[in-house]
Amino acid sequence: MQEYFSLFGLPERFAIDPAQLEVAYRNVQAQVHPDRFAHRPEAERRVAMQWATLANEAFRTLKNPLARARYLLSRRGVEIDAERNNGMSHAFLMQQMEWRESVEEAADDAEALQRLERDLARDERVMLDDVKHAIDEEVDLVQASELVRRLMFMEKLRREIDEALALLEN
């Protein structure tokens, strides 16, 4: 299976220049997209579709910091199971519960929900910085995967807030 970073000619690191990633992605799609081969025989169209599919998946993965971190960890043999939360610190489990309660309480208060969302996003940014450090510099994969697992929870929570906001809007 083609590795994502090398597909885009980027060094395999967490720190990434989004603009450079985007340019590289577009360059690849410009070469492989099925639209370039629509008049070609079936076999070529099929191969083009496979490459374009891969480019989309690679771009989607590397663009999103959390997905990128998971990808880097899995390349290093660390698979993260979304379902389990053993090994999470007690403090974080408590924090999880608090957040959940706040979301439930704010369920029909758009402003409170937005505030929660902003707080979460701010915390996530700080943690992603730690992830960058843990993967690119310190190479502490245990810490990185612990952070990623927390971030996964937070992302899920943010999606729930989004859904609650969407309901309020309509």
Binding site: S6, G9, A24, N27, V28, Q31
Partner: peptide, 10 residues
Amino acid sequence: ALTGNRIDAL
């Protein structure tokens, strides 16, 4: 093609 591309983009 992609290899050529990569060298250019680096």
